[in-house]
Every structure is written in structure tokens, then in C-alpha cells.
Amino acid sequence: MNKGHSIMEYETVELDDENGELVIIDQTKLPFKTEILRLKTQQEIWNAIYLLQVRGAPAIGVAAAFGIYLAAKEIGSEDYRAFYKEFQKAKDYLDSARPTAVNLSWALKRMEAVCNRNKDKPVKEIKKALLKEAEEIRDRDVSVCRQMGEYGLSLVKPGDGLLTHCNAGKLAAVRYGTATAPMYLGAERGYGFRIFVDETRPLLQGARLTAFELHESGLEVILICDNMSASVMRSGWVNAVFVGCDRVAANGDTANKIGTSMAALAAKRYGVPFYVCAPTSTIDMEMKTGDDIIIEERPGEEITEMWFKERMAPEGINTYNPSFDVTDNDLITGIVTEYGIAYPPYTESLKKILAESLYGYVPQL
């Protein structure tokens, strides 16, 4: 346990290459305890992703990149075929940790591509190239989140009330976050936002993480239960909703933490703009619609007894606990990316943004 330090002083995900460790904040212990985990084995890293000790699409991608680099580093063979076989085994293992967040497979595919591009080089050089790629994935996350923050900030004005769901903040990325990036940049520039945070049942990422990190950063935060979002929108207290995203389908349907679609429905009813902050790495053009996205289902105990001093549901009760839901594209006002804001029809605007991303740079506003 670390006392006397703000959560903002720690990196969400970092690499200790000298000691061969992936270093993360254990997000399951927040806000009561700030515990830094140092993960050495692939099983430890897999568990950290599955158990949500590290979570959020961007942070998962960075953790996967560093994790597979550490796996590659431990492969002893200097023969490329033998090395690559072990690399693929480790890649497939990490990729199985969480099926919905596309950044996991995206980062692992990028790392695999490094192996393929350098297959004629000594294995020692391939390992160096893998480290460089993992570091680039981390650094890119920071610049991407800041750019999304700039675009998101252009959609609101000083004094606005904002609402967010789950945690798409610094704890879900390396810095700034996705949906919270406009909030952090606005705070730096004196916008004076009032931010409503859904608690986000059943794992309480909004209450434990988003409210915690925004409050630690000095922003005005109002925590509400998930079923209160429609009420605050009806009262006229919310001028825009910003949420994160784990996967975007080609038609603009998005998968995000369970309950996101309910906030989108309420926003549509009360005329509140609903924005999804999604780095281009989360756009999956192979998924034609949200119906194609695999939704992770988690243990029912998260509903019936997790966080409670005593079990709060009858023994033997049936449960259904999907971790994500799909927000239909007609409920989304715009999708904020690092290359600009996509508007309907998304089948056209997302293609255009992905074409921009092929140039390989992040545009500066």
C-alpha cells in the first residue's frame, strides 16, 4: 500500500525491462488502496487482464504489447521458426483473456507483424524491434488521447454539465483517457465543467475509478447511480455525454461497458448530444454491425455478492451478467477519434477516418 501519493502520480501501465516485469496499478483495489503489481509471468499478465486489475481498451493494448515482449524476451531459441512458434503460443494465450476489447488483439497483431517483418534478422534483433514497437504503442496512446481530448473539447463550452459512464479515464489508458480527455483538458483551461459520473454496476468502475481520479485531479464530480442518468438529463443539467468504447463496428454501432446503451437512449429522449470517444485502434471494419461483436459474460457473483458485506440476492438465483452492451449507431451523435469526429452515416465517415490514419501520423489541431 502506498500512502501520501495521488493516483495521478503513477503510470497506469509501464515496463521495468531490467527486471523483466510489467508494472500496473491494481484497479480492483481502488479507491481504498493503491497497490502496484509487478507481473513477471504470462499467467500473471493474463490474470491481470481477465480479472480487470488492468482494464480499459487502451491500457489493455499497452499491457498486451509489453506482455508479449516479455514473453518473447524469455524465449531461448535463436532459430526463427522455433522462436516464432513460441511467440504465437504466447500471443494466442494473452489474446484469450478478454474477447470484446479489440485493442488486445490489435496490439498483439502489431507485435506479431514486427516478427514477420524482421524474420530474416537474428532473434536478438527481433526482440529489440518488439521492445521499440511496444514503446511506440504506449507513446501513441498518450498523443491519441490528447488529440481526442482536443476534438471533444471543441464540442462543448465552459460551464457545461457533462456525463460519463464506466471509466474511460487515465486509469483506462496511459494518460488523459479517452472520454475524460476533454474533461482534463478543459480543467487545464478553466472550463469549470460539472461532471456527472454513473456508478456503473456491477463492478462500479464509475464510482471506484472515474469519480476517484477526477476528484483527485480537482474536478467537480457528482456521483450518481446508473438509473439516475435520465433524471439529471431531464432536469437540463447535462449538456453532453462522453463515453469510451471497446469496439466500433463498420456501421457505427459501438460496444462499451454495460449500461452505456441506457444512457444513450436517455440522451436521445432528452436531446442531449451523445459522443463516443474511440481511437482508431478500436474500429473493427470486419464487424459489419454490433450484432457481430462478441459480448463477454462474467460470473453472476459480481451481481449478487461482490462489494456487499453480505449476499444481497437469494441463494440459487439465476443471473445474467454481460460485461458490455451495444449502442446502436442511430443513438450516437458523433464518434470522436484522434483523426477527427465521425458523423452519420458512419459507414462513410469511419472509412474516411481510417484512410487518414494510414498516413501514420496524428494530426495536430
Rank of each mutant, 00 (worst) to 15 (best):
V232C: 11
S229Q: 14
R269W: 08
A240Q: 05
N227S: 15
E199A: 15
R269V: 11
F193C: 12
R247V: 07
F242P: 00
L203Y: 07
C245D: 03
G206D: 04
R194Y: 10
R269D: 07
V272A: 07
V232W: 13
A264C: 09
A266F: 03
V248R: 06
E220I: 11
S217F: 13
V248M: 04
R194F: 07
F193R: 06
N256E: 03
A255V: 10
K257S: 05
H215P: 02
G218Y: 15
S261E: 06
R201F: 14
T210S: 12
G218S: 11
R234T: 10
L214Y: 04
V272W: 04
H215C: 09
V232S: 13
M233Y: 06
N227G: 05
G192H: 03
D226L: 13
R208C: 05
V241F: 13
T254S: 13
N227D: 11
V197S: 13
T200Q: 06
V221S: 00
T200S: 14
N227M: 12
S231P: 04
R269C: 07
S217H: 10
M262F: 15
N227T: 12
H215E: 10
S261H: 09
F212E: 02
K268R: 13
V272C: 04
A250S: 04
V243Q: 01
G252E: 00
D226G: 10
V241Q: 08
T200N: 05
S235I: 13
N251K: 03
E220V: 12
V241L: 11
N239M: 14
A250E: 01
I224L: 11
A249K: 01
V243N: 02
V272T: 08
D226S: 07
A267D: 02
P273M: 07
L209M: 08
K257W: 09
E216I: 03
T254C: 15
L204F: 14
E216D: 09
L223V: 13
S235E: 15
V221H: 03
A211H: 06
I224P: 00
V238T: 12
L203P: 01
L204C: 04
L203V: 12
L209N: 00
R201K: 12
G236T: 10
I224V: 09
I222L: 15
V248P: 02
I258Q: 00
N227Y: 10
V221I: 08
Q205T: 02
V241K: 03
V241E: 03
G192I: 14
I258C: 08
I224S: 08
L204W: 05
A267Y: 06
L203I: 13
L265I: 15
M262D: 09
R194I: 06
D253I: 03
E220N: 12
E220K: 13
I195H: 02
G259K: 02
A207L: 09
R208Y: 09
R208E: 03
Q205G: 01
Y270M: 13
S229L: 10
I224D: 02
G244M: 09
A240M: 14
L203W: 11
R234Y: 08
A230Y: 03
E213Q: 07
A263P: 00
V248T: 07
V238F: 08
D226T: 11
S235T: 12
V197D: 05
V232R: 07
G259M: 04
M233T: 09
N227A: 14
R247P: 00
R234S: 11
